[in-house]
């Protein structure tokens, strides 16, 4: 066990310990978008990420359960509208995730 650590176990701890809730292409895209703006509605996120309604709902649900985003359902011009924004926890976790991933990728040659 000890030998395993010495032979490179710690080397990959960065990538192994990446946040699994975030580490999914669709969720990275959603968080990246939300980290660049204050808030966006469901349709805007769908248009920009290219995800389907069901897919986007699924990933937003995962992120909301983890407390990374805040979903607010409201009415706009008498029509239902879903507003999504990043929570403080979500912003911190997203930054940590990007930092860890970048650190790991910097050590890899093409």
């Amino acid at each position: 066990m000890k030998d395993n650590n010495l032979s490179g176990g710690n080397l990959f701890s960065g990538i192994i310990e990446l946040n699994k809730t975030i580490h999914e292409p669709a969720r990275i895209a959603i968080l990246c978008l939300l980290s660049s703006v204050e808030s966006a509605d469901f349709l805007f996120i769908m248009n920009q990420t290219g995800l389907t309604q069901g897919n986007l709902s699924f990933h937003l649900g995962k992120l909301e359960s983890a407390g990374y985003i805040v979903i607010e359902k409201r009415f706009r011009n008498k029509r239902p509208n879903t507003l999504v924004r990043l929570s403080d926890t979500g912003r911190d976790e997203y930054r940590r995730y990007i930092r860890s991933l970048r650190e790991f990728l910097n050590g890899i040659s093409d």
Binding site: S36, V37, E38, S39, A40, D41, F42, L43, F44, I45, M46, N47, R76, N81
Partner: peptide
């Protein structure tokens, strides 16, 4: 707007 959705940008 109904086609593109709405977004609020940062400060």
């Amino acid at each position: 707007q109904p086609r593109l959705g709405t977004v609020k940008f940062g400060t």
